[in-house]
Amino acid sequence: MFRSLTRDAIAAFRGSSLYAKYVVGLSFWFLGTQAASAHVKWFCAYDAAGQPRSLENVLCQDFELLLGLALFCFFSGCLVERTSLGELTARSLNRFTDGLRLHTEEIIRAVCGFFFVSLWAVGGILLTPELKTTSPMVGPLQLAIAAGLLWRRTMPLSAAGIAVLFGLAVRDYGTFHLADYPIFLGLAAYLALTGLQKDLFGIPPLDVVRYATAVTLMWASVEKWAYPEWSFPLLIEHPGMTLGFDSEFYMRAAGMVEFTLAFALAWTPLVRRVAAAMLLGMFVSACFEFGKLDVIGHSAIIVVLIAILSDHQPREADYRAPWLAPAGLCAALTVTLFAYYVGHAATFNTSIL
């Protein structure tokens, strides 16, 4: 049976269309993809309560091909980490990011201040462009959050303000919608813990926001599989992003790239730094493509990625055996897909299959 399956797989691989998809899928790991960075809810119409693509449609042959590529790339990166090449890469990153690492806290505070002042200036927004509000108290609160970031002692107050805005968004848009944005709770935790000079049960503040960022991007990647049609207008408007491939395959690839790099943020020291660098390049390039709204909306996540890239003080406990990488990625993918579809069905009474 195994030999039969192997022969079938080789025959399928030799097919021109599958071979082309293999090549373009692999190229995404080196070139990145702007669609994985642009938040479609900010630019296109969407229906969060609509029926998502069935899991049978999502878990197709293209998905399996892309997952295989993701496992190969991720496992290869983990193998390289503790070799001389990995050490050379780490030293090179250290030289490039030393100055940033020494001022991580100040950079995060400055960019978060810019973010909340920008929200106040635009007006009518809670935390991200699609979270609209008419409350007259939100603008002053955003200014107060920005002002509190000027001094370390008042950073916990700014963190409390972010939590209030997040709570208002949950009230107005629901828990499932705000599952897109746990990064804001992570930022609030970072600011509070840094201001108080404390850890969270032994977890450093930067690691708290790192994990929150990983969960945010993994969750967002599922939307690219569940609702690829939301992004189709963007791909029509920016046809160069698809590299000449059909929109369906492109969105599956974009989701897989984003999910794998997001999971890598929660993995070992060099792997997460390289993943942060790749995501950073994707988010910054998307800002040039999509303009001012994207700059403001993604400034918080960009500064967190810079902080992760600059962090080169790993603990021995941060390292894991490379063979755990594929199992970890598959487990995270399974849990995230399950949580998304079950949560959506429970919230909006839609079908899972």
Rank of each mutant, 00 (worst) to 15 (best):
D8C: 12
I10H: 05
A11M: 10
S16I: 10
L18D: 10
S27P: 09
A38R: 08
V40H: 03
W42H: 07
S54K: 01
L55K: 05
L59Y: 08
F63L: 00
G68E: 07
F74T: 09
F75I: 02
R82A: 09
G86S: 01
E87D: 14
A90R: 10
A90M: 07
R91A: 11
R95H: 12
G99Y: 01
H103S: 09
E106T: 09
A110M: 13
G113Y: 02
W120H: 15
A121V: 13
V122A: 12
G124I: 07
E130P: 03
K132N: 06
Q142F: 01
L143G: 03
L143W: 04
A144M: 08
A147K: 15
G148F: 03
G148M: 00
L149S: 00
T154C: 06
P156D: 07
L157G: 09
F166C: 11
G167E: 13
Y173C: 11
D180E: 14
Y181R: 10
P182Y: 05
G186W: 04
A188K: 10
G202S: 07
D207F: 04
A212E: 05
T213D: 10
M218A: 03
K224C: 10
W225L: 15
P228K: 03
W230A: 01
L234Y: 04
E237N: 13
F245W: 14
E248I: 14
M251I: 09
G255E: 07
V257E: 12
A262L: 04
A264D: 03
L270K: 00
V271M: 02
M282Q: 11
V284A: 08
S285E: 05
C287G: 01
D294H: 15
V295D: 06
G297M: 06
H298F: 10
A300V: 15
I301E: 13
A307T: 02
D311V: 00
Q313L: 08
P322W: 02
W323H: 13
P326G: 04
L329R: 01
A332Q: 02
L333R: 09
T336S: 09
A339S: 14
